[in-house]
Amino acid sequence: MGHDRIDPEGIADPVDDLYSQVVVSSGEKTIHVAGTTARDSDGLVVGETYAEQIEQTLTNVEASLAAAGADPADVVRQTIYALDCDAFVEEAYPHVVDFYGDDALPASALIGADSLADPDYLLELEVTAVLEE
């Protein structure tokens, strides 16, 4: 099983090649990871910058995926909520690309938010993964 990542002709290329326009997957198991933030195992928010918070958030996402038998390469879609989209792209998106690797970027949406569940959150990330059982 694999995921085919497609950037169709006639549609603008993904901005700075930070995501895949289309991901086609076939599999028997779909994993939905809830909105994940930069809280550590003690419930404390880690970091005051986008770079610091995305590192903890990705660590948490990876743990959630592993608990379901998946890894970052199985992620086909992500939705990112950020208080400042420009700052997120500049400071945090390189960490996201490193997390997935250039050849396994999921389809993605980046949504600007006026606020998140905790005033210390700068971002929140939810993902969907598909794999065979």
Rank of each mutant, 00 (worst) to 15 (best):
G2Q: 11
H3P: 15
H3E: 08
H3L: 10
D7R: 11
D7I: 08
P8T: 03
E9G: 14
A12M: 15
A12E: 13
D13F: 13
D13P: 12
D16S: 13
L18H: 08
Y19F: 04
V23M: 00
V23H: 00
S25R: 04
S25N: 05
S26V: 14
S26L: 14
G27R: 07
K29P: 01
V33P: 07
A34L: 10
T36F: 05
T36Q: 00
A38V: 01
R39L: 08
L44D: 13
E48S: 12
T49P: 00
T49N: 02
Y50V: 09
E62N: 05
A63G: 06
L65E: 04
L65K: 05
A66V: 08
A68K: 09
G69P: 00
A70G: 04
D71N: 12
D74L: 02
D74P: 02
V75S: 06
V75D: 10
V76I: 05
V76Y: 01
L83Q: 10
L83E: 11
D84P: 01
D84V: 03
C85G: 14
A87C: 06
A87P: 01
E90Q: 09
E91W: 03
E91R: 02
A92C: 03
Y93T: 14
H95R: 12
V96M: 10
D98L: 06
D102G: 11
A104N: 11
L105I: 06
A107V: 05
S108T: 15
S108W: 07
S108V: 07
L110G: 02
I111S: 12
G112T: 05
S115Y: 06
L116Y: 08
A117C: 09
D118C: 05
L123V: 07
E124I: 14
E124S: 15
E126H: 09
V127L: 04
T128A: 09
T128K: 11
V130A: 06
